[in-house]
Design a protein around this nucleic acid. Sequence first.
RNA 1: GGGCAGUUAGCUCAGCUGGAAGAGCAAUUCCCUUACAAGGAAUAGGCCGCAGGUUCAAAUCCUGCACUGCCCACCA
Length: 919
Amino acid sequence: MEMEKVYNSKNVEEKWYKYWIENKTFSSKPDESRKPFTIVIPPPNVTGSLHMGHALNNTLQDIIIRFKKLQGFNVCWVPGTDHGGIATQNVVEKLLKKEGKTKYDLGRDKFLETMWKWRVETGDTILDQLKKLGCGLDWDRTAFTMDETRSKAVKKAFIELFDKGLIYRGKRLVNWCSRCGTALSDIEVEYEDEKSNLWHIKYPFRDSDGYIIVATTRPETMLGDTAVAVSPDDERYADVIGKTINLPLVDREIKVVSDYIVDKAFGTGAVKVTPAHDATDNEIAKRNNLETIEIIDISGKMINVPEKYSGLSVVEARKAVVADLEAQGLLIKTEDYSHSVGRCYRCATTIEPLMSEQWFLNVSGMSKKAVDAANEEKTKFYPQSWKKPYVLWLENLRDWCISRQIWWGHRIPVYYCVDENGQRKPDCKPVADFETPKECPDCKGTKFFQDEDVLDTWFSSALWPISVFNWGEDENNEDLKYFYPTSVLVTGHEILYLWVARMVQFGIEFMKDIPYSHVFIHGIVRDKSGKKMSKSLGNVIDPLGIMDKFGTDALRFALAQAAAPGRDMQVSDESFLAARNFANKIWNASRFIIMNLEGIDKLDDNIKPAELADDWILAELQKTYNKVCSAYETYDMDSAARELYDFFWTKFCDWYIELSKIRMTSADLKVKKQVLEILVYVLKSFLQLASPVMPFITAEIWQTLNKQSEEWGVKSEDKGIIAESSLPFIAGKDKVLTRQSGVIQGMNTNGAEPALKQLQTIEKMKSIQDIITKIRTIRSEMNISPAAQINAVFNVSDNGNESVSFAKDNQDYIKRLAKLETVSFEKDAKRPKNSALAVAGGLEIFLPLEGLIDIEKEKARLAKEIALAGQEIERTKSKLSNENFVKRAPEAEVEKIKERLKEAETKIEKINDSLKFLG
RNA sequence: GGGCAGUUAGCUCAGCUGGAAGAGCAAUUCCCUUACAAGGAAUAGGCCGCAGGUUCAAAUCCUGCACUGCCCACCA
């Protein structure tokens, strides 16, 4: 088995992602004998090209899917894309603009044709990129929010809600984006602080000389004022309530009203009320029966105002109004003021609140049920800190404005009965239907026209977990029954409300069940300095470039490692480089093992641990196995990645493989085979555990190992495909898979409890490691070349001493890793001249270094050791002299401290003794 | 205004059901010891944001404060 010296990710990746697709490794069919594990992808917009956010989101999902598959679940991960409403329309409009055209030049039908053409040409780019990322998606299920099946679901949902009376049409104050030319829902508005002014304006009373001063950030809207409001308990204004004001510039009479919402401490305590263009004012108007005058139209121009201002933009009108007020001496003062301004989340245009006829969805019933589901932990959040804001949001939810005045999207399936002239018949109720109705239920008329608006893109997204399983076609189909509710939703917190909350509401509404039991919320990928990546900042890291440069597994590992629950993460080339190095380490350790299989007969699956290192690595493997599995299960991908890294590099490579070389070079092939069996066993276990994060490299090595087995005539159940293999799990009750305790086979427990035995083994190994490290430190500090073979003399004062016999048993380890020529055990050994001393594990070790040692250096080194031990003595003594500590701390703790004190004391004693022999 | 997170080595972060401060990267020294220089060995580097409290014992629990970031709000 030849393996390249350096891991070449390109060839390996190409091979495997094609394999998984061609062999439909991740295809899923309902199977009642197995438990499903389902994820629906957060469908990326068709406009999209893979960015770091997608890379993270999908890596995390793939880790879960691959892990669950190893556990034996029938996994189903559904891919797809979202038509992306406004965002997508904007992209195509921009393309048109380059040709000097607008959508109106084309007209609705032609424009939609262009949209579809564009969607067909570019819409699958991102799905192809997900394939490269290695995602174990079931490609046969690929869905699009505007394909036929999904469209049926949208219509079906709309009609159901319409017929229940939950969808209604009305003229309300909505958030209007004049650039996109559409209404937006409340959450589609993003607020940003902006420096502006607070203008104080004098409003004179009609019947007296007095006036009232209002403070406003929007002077231009005064043209539409229909009242001034003050707080009911503001004494300053108590006697002006009810008075009439002559509205400047317009010369209209308005009243002073009182309303609880007015904060008397803010500004002047008096608020101008513009019901048609401010949400709060609108409510004040409702409570006080005020008139509503619309003065800004949907293009952002002034209307219904004195001719002078008519047709001006909002910005122009503001200037003009301020200038005119000033000229009339009505502008009292202009303060600097910073306040937040709403912007369109798609194009950043300032949002204009205005009155408009729109479709709304009454969500009060659904949101209550969604809140209950969260409170009853039916939907569980990871990390759970998201539950509170989620519930809070749902509790304060207002009706959802679902109509959009754009063309790209699901056209609202409502039909109006019209007369011969195409005029709507006022007495006929609109009808919601899948297609144009044959006959009007009210007048038996047969002419209709369909509502012009389309639905908010999030309406179809909210149906995603049910629409992908063909709910729109058949709500009792097998897939839906088997795969719904899904297992976990993985997404970033930026769409928690926009999407997650709505899916839950729709799931409960249409399926009578939550769409998923877990919601795994991850952070945002930021750049090296913690900034959000954005095109305008130019700090975007392209995941495809990273895949190319460092390998996909490196990208995935680095992302997983950074994905600590509940926080944003910073990535940089260094993190990808470290991950690539890890991949290379895995590759080379495997190469070493595989190379050594040359000329060996068939390995026995039943490993036979023979010595300390064997027991130790198996104990460490068991620990890692437990930790990694539970980390995957709780979506702590960062700890999973860390455990894998630490185990493989620090435990397996640095210690076990190095120690295995003693037996590997043995002339006795039986000995070599025995250790190879364990090496292969541990490697394979590791590969399985790591495969969810690093699917490519693990697949390749697994297959290489399998080829070797085939050469020995061994056929494996998984055909050499790691994704088809299973972790050592057993099926428990109700087909729920539980982890088997003590699954790592073969450890010598000698009758002890496995867990305890593991601990003891690790402790023992630690003392050997300690001896080796101490000797290595001396070598390094004395500048002894690694090539120089030196000797070590263990001073044996008491032959029955446990640590002595233990060191004796494992002297080969010490010899090998500390690079010693000989190791000897001498009773009452005298420190040789010009030697160095190591004290480890209660043992005294002399390293005769005639000609190599620098006496002064050694003295200084020992002095440092004494100082360190002295500190330890101080610390432990002060603890022990504390009566309360001895009395109240657990006995084991006190014993431990006593042990440490004793150890430090003998250490100093030994060092002092030997110092006498120095120089 | 309300809420949520974070503050630990130069950088990125672990550790937080309380019992001797950890990793990776960067730095320093030595080494191409045949799995790996994308590597190995060793070293240095931290009053664990500040102030109190609980406890025999606090990075870890509690309270307050500061700063940073995010989210929500009817910021005239």
